[in-house]
Amino acid sequence: MSENELMSRSALAPVLALALMLTGLAAPAGAQVCEDTSALRAGSVSGEISGAHAYSVPVNGDWRFELQPQPHGWVIAVIDADGQDRTALTPPLHLDTNPRRLSGWHLRNAANTAANQGDINAPQLERRFVIAGDDGNPSPGVFNIRDYGLADLEPGERARLVYLRFDACLYFPRTEEEQQAAADLASPVFLPEEVEQLRDCGLTSDYELEAWMLPRTLGGDFDGDGALDIAAPVRRTRDQSRAIAICRAGSWIDVLEAIDADGPDEFGAYLQQAEAWQITALDTGSEAERPGIMPGVHGDVISVERIEKQAWTVFWDGTQFRAFERYHHVEP
């Protein structure tokens, strides 16, 4: 895309429409959620910067998120592989109160004697900007100032930002292939090849595949042998009790389940209430150090959750899959 195409005023209409939408996108300061959507990939960035230094980290493949020094602080930029700033069309254009410009005097009153109480019409700790896509359609970005330091605080001066601690969330359009893959993950319908893989691995007719939590499969190296394993939610046909089947390297099947329909196996009983699961990092704190819980973890681990209420970790100890309760928030 040429510079003229990037800066074309014909692109302003979608940019302005997105600028209006940004008001509903950003979470309150301190509570930002940076998550993928069906159409957008989310990328989070956080860090610190001080003095006259620049900040630059890779995003979106070969693009870069940058904070570039300017006279009163820094300016936000997202630089593509051709060196173009994809945030340049963020409105209002050509004004020093543009939300991309992180200027110390934005946070001070007109006399530079105290904090800005509204007498200077400038963005404050949360900055919302737009990122031009290859097709001309913009996606949003949100930048939050978490802490800052100022200089040039004498009355009549324009204050300078000399320190920032920040986090940002950048959204980039998914390709059609990525959108299809995301839609596939959200579907509860098992593909014929997934059914065949689990049956060939040894899952008997005592169990039926049913996506009682999503995604319907997780793929990882759960036993640490370097081969791909697949895990899927299933039901026991005789009593419809929930269970998890794990096919290791296409050859061995393990089923995690309740001993009977109601338990008494504690993790098996917990599965009857579980809502979501994911591959996750293993805790390294006190829970991971409890005697007898994890004599040796091999491979990826799975977190099985009741959202914001309870979670169990499933891991391979070298011989079998085991589980321990990671947390349990008591409900009022």
Rank of each mutant, 00 (worst) to 15 (best):
residue 95 L to W: 12
residue 95 L to I: 08
residue 97 T to A: 13
residue 97 T to V: 15
residue 98 N to M: 12
residue 98 N to W: 12
residue 98 N to R: 07
residue 98 N to V: 10
residue 99 P to I: 07
residue 99 P to C: 07
residue 99 P to M: 08
residue 100 R to E: 13
residue 101 R to T: 06
residue 101 R to P: 04
residue 101 R to C: 07
residue 102 L to T: 04
residue 102 L to R: 05
residue 102 L to S: 07
residue 102 L to I: 15
residue 105 W to P: 12
residue 107 L to I: 11
residue 107 L to E: 01
residue 108 R to W: 03
residue 108 R to D: 01
residue 108 R to M: 14
residue 109 N to H: 06
residue 109 N to M: 04
residue 109 N to T: 04
residue 111 A to L: 10
residue 111 A to Q: 14
residue 112 N to A: 05
residue 112 N to Y: 03
residue 113 T to M: 02
residue 113 T to D: 05
residue 114 A to P: 00
residue 116 N to W: 09
residue 118 G to H: 07
residue 118 G to E: 05
residue 119 D to W: 06
residue 119 D to V: 05
residue 122 A to S: 11
residue 123 P to K: 06
residue 123 P to T: 13
residue 124 Q to W: 11
residue 126 E to K: 15
residue 127 R to N: 15
residue 127 R to W: 12
residue 127 R to C: 08
residue 128 R to E: 11
residue 129 F to Q: 07
residue 129 F to I: 08
residue 131 I to A: 02
residue 131 I to Y: 00
residue 131 I to K: 00
residue 132 A to Q: 14
residue 132 A to M: 15
residue 133 G to N: 03
residue 133 G to L: 03
residue 133 G to K: 02
residue 133 G to C: 09
residue 134 D to F: 10
residue 136 G to W: 03
residue 136 G to T: 06
residue 138 P to D: 00
residue 138 P to H: 03
residue 138 P to S: 03
residue 139 S to W: 00
residue 140 P to E: 05
residue 141 G to F: 07
residue 141 G to E: 02
residue 141 G to K: 01
residue 142 V to C: 04
residue 142 V to L: 06
residue 142 V to R: 03
residue 144 N to I: 09
residue 144 N to L: 10
residue 144 N to T: 09
residue 145 I to F: 07
residue 147 D to I: 09
residue 148 Y to K: 10
residue 149 G to F: 07
residue 149 G to N: 08
residue 150 L to F: 11
residue 150 L to E: 06
residue 151 A to G: 04
residue 151 A to R: 13
residue 152 D to K: 12
residue 152 D to V: 02
residue 152 D to S: 11
residue 152 D to F: 09
residue 154 E to R: 05
residue 154 E to C: 00
residue 154 E to F: 06
residue 155 P to T: 02
residue 155 P to W: 10
residue 155 P to K: 04
residue 156 G to D: 09
residue 157 E to W: 10
residue 157 E to H: 10
residue 157 E to F: 11
residue 159 A to H: 02
residue 160 R to D: 14
residue 160 R to H: 14
residue 161 L to P: 01
residue 162 V to Y: 07
residue 162 V to A: 02
residue 163 Y to A: 14
residue 163 Y to K: 14
residue 164 L to A: 05
residue 165 R to H: 07
residue 165 R to T: 14
residue 165 R to W: 04
residue 166 F to E: 01
residue 168 A to E: 04
residue 168 A to S: 15
residue 170 L to D: 01
residue 170 L to P: 02
residue 171 Y to L: 03
residue 171 Y to S: 00
residue 171 Y to A: 00
residue 171 Y to M: 03
residue 172 F to Q: 00
residue 173 P to S: 01
residue 173 P to I: 00
residue 174 R to G: 00
residue 177 E to V: 13
residue 178 E to N: 02
residue 178 E to A: 11
residue 179 Q to N: 03
residue 179 Q to L: 04
residue 181 A to W: 10
residue 182 A to F: 15
residue 182 A to D: 09
residue 183 A to M: 13
residue 184 D to Y: 13
residue 184 D to N: 12
residue 185 L to N: 09
residue 185 L to I: 04
residue 185 L to E: 15
residue 187 S to L: 09
residue 188 P to D: 07
residue 189 V to C: 01
residue 189 V to A: 14
residue 190 F to A: 00
residue 190 F to I: 10
residue 190 F to T: 08
residue 191 L to M: 12
residue 191 L to T: 11
residue 192 P to C: 02
residue 193 E to F: 13
residue 193 E to N: 14
residue 194 E to K: 09
